[in-house]
Computed example of a mutant assay.
Amino acid sequence: MHVLLLGGTWFLGRAVARHALANDCEVTTFNRGQSTPYLPGTLAVHGDRASADDFERLARYGPWDVVIDTSASDTAPRHVLAGARALAEVTDRYVYVSSVSVYRNWGAGPLTESSATYDTPADAGPEYYEGLDPAEQDGMRKAGCERAVTEAFGADRTTILRPGSILGPGEYIGRLPWWLRRCARGGEILAPREPDRPVQPIDARDVAAFAVSAPAGVFNVTAPRGHATMRDLLTACLDATGYQGRLVWTSEEVLARHGVRGRTELPLWPGTDGVVDVSAALAAGLTCRPLDRTVADTWAWLRDGADSVAGQQSGWERHGIAPDKEAAILAEVGLSG
């Protein structure tokens, strides 16, 4: 199979490239060539996805059986539309990696692929969602990109993947790396109740495998309900790092009183309450490895030096609670207990 990968240098894109190469695919990558070196065995084409001329030049390297787009997270829909149109005649199918953030009621109720999404035009530019909350901007942008790809390729040639939190070796956002490093530091560790609240993160390698083989259609791509809880996640972090710390489960009321921000100061909290339905993806071949394996492999990657270059860890500083703030909350919890 001939695969065109938009991206292919960081985290998920690199995982897709590795999986495709391991399964005897011929892989062409398209990116600016400014971050991680391309993988041996791939054909690297450099260009800017915001440039129509670069996409027209890229199209001359085709044809391909599938284009897998992992690099449009910050790209305006109109640029995705132009790129998809340039590739429509030389590619059989387009796989676009979107996000569960496209759902209007994300976090407020059960989500299936038919749940309401943002109604962003396929040709929208950045000005369409300027001034909005960053999370809403992200959802609107990705919804527009989904529409752009579908408009250019048609529904029967388009695969839309909507993952939630993606973890694993190579993670540049810094959520799981922060928890692992905090557990390795030991001592009393601030942990959010409820410990048995479900979480649905998925390993990048499992997303990558599904991206290469998924049929046309729209799929939520997270771990299934019942896969893991917050307790499972943090216990796995302690296990991987040698059990040097003790989890102190703290009520959400106390955390709120101290202004603790979910998803950043305590990454992956508050979880999802198991609201994302992934039955369609499971039926189409998605498999999810145990969360403790993802945690252990990520810790091994961190201990090996986190094989990255400039920019790979650009989001890490946004995650994790400051030690003095954590200590103050733990002291209050200890006094009240």
Rank of each mutant, 00 (worst) to 15 (best):
residue 83 G to Q: 02
residue 124 A to S: 13
residue 99 S to D: 08
residue 184 A to V: 01
residue 172 Y to N: 06
residue 93 R to F: 00
residue 110 P to C: 00
residue 155 A to N: 01
residue 111 L to R: 01
residue 100 V to R: 02
residue 183 C to H: 09
residue 92 D to N: 09
residue 197 R to P: 01
residue 83 G to F: 00
residue 119 D to K: 07
residue 151 E to Q: 15
residue 161 L to D: 07
residue 122 A to I: 03
residue 144 G to T: 14
residue 82 A to L: 03
residue 103 Y to M: 02
residue 183 C to R: 06
residue 95 V to N: 07
residue 172 Y to A: 07
residue 127 E to I: 08
residue 170 G to H: 08
residue 134 P to H: 05
residue 100 V to C: 10
residue 112 T to D: 11
residue 139 G to I: 04
residue 190 L to C: 04
residue 109 G to P: 04
residue 183 C to M: 12
residue 128 Y to Q: 11
residue 110 P to G: 07
residue 102 V to K: 09
residue 104 R to K: 14
residue 190 L to G: 10
residue 102 V to E: 09
residue 174 G to P: 11
residue 111 L to I: 15
residue 84 A to C: 03
residue 138 D to N: 15
residue 178 W to H: 12
residue 94 Y to A: 04
residue 174 G to A: 08
residue 166 I to V: 13
residue 146 E to N: 09
residue 197 R to V: 05
residue 120 T to K: 07
residue 106 W to H: 11
residue 184 A to S: 06
residue 103 Y to H: 12
residue 157 R to A: 12
residue 100 V to H: 02
residue 177 P to T: 11
residue 153 F to G: 14
residue 154 G to Y: 13
residue 110 P to D: 15
residue 164 G to L: 04
residue 105 N to D: 15
residue 150 T to Q: 15
residue 143 A to L: 11
residue 98 S to D: 02
residue 164 G to S: 12
residue 147 R to F: 13
residue 98 S to T: 03
residue 82 A to T: 12
residue 184 A to R: 11
residue 139 G to F: 12
residue 184 A to P: 01
residue 111 L to D: 01
residue 167 L to A: 05
residue 87 L to G: 01
residue 95 V to K: 04
residue 117 T to N: 02
residue 141 R to T: 01
residue 163 P to T: 03
residue 103 Y to Q: 03
residue 177 P to R: 12
residue 175 R to P: 02
residue 102 V to S: 05
residue 122 A to K: 08
residue 168 G to C: 10
residue 190 L to W: 11
residue 181 R to H: 07
residue 87 L to F: 03
residue 92 D to Q: 03
residue 164 G to D: 03
residue 161 L to Q: 06
residue 91 T to F: 00
residue 131 G to N: 11
residue 125 G to W: 11
residue 181 R to P: 00
residue 157 R to E: 10
residue 134 P to Q: 10
residue 188 E to F: 07
residue 88 A to D: 03
residue 124 A to D: 11
residue 129 Y to S: 14
residue 118 Y to N: 06
residue 132 L to I: 06
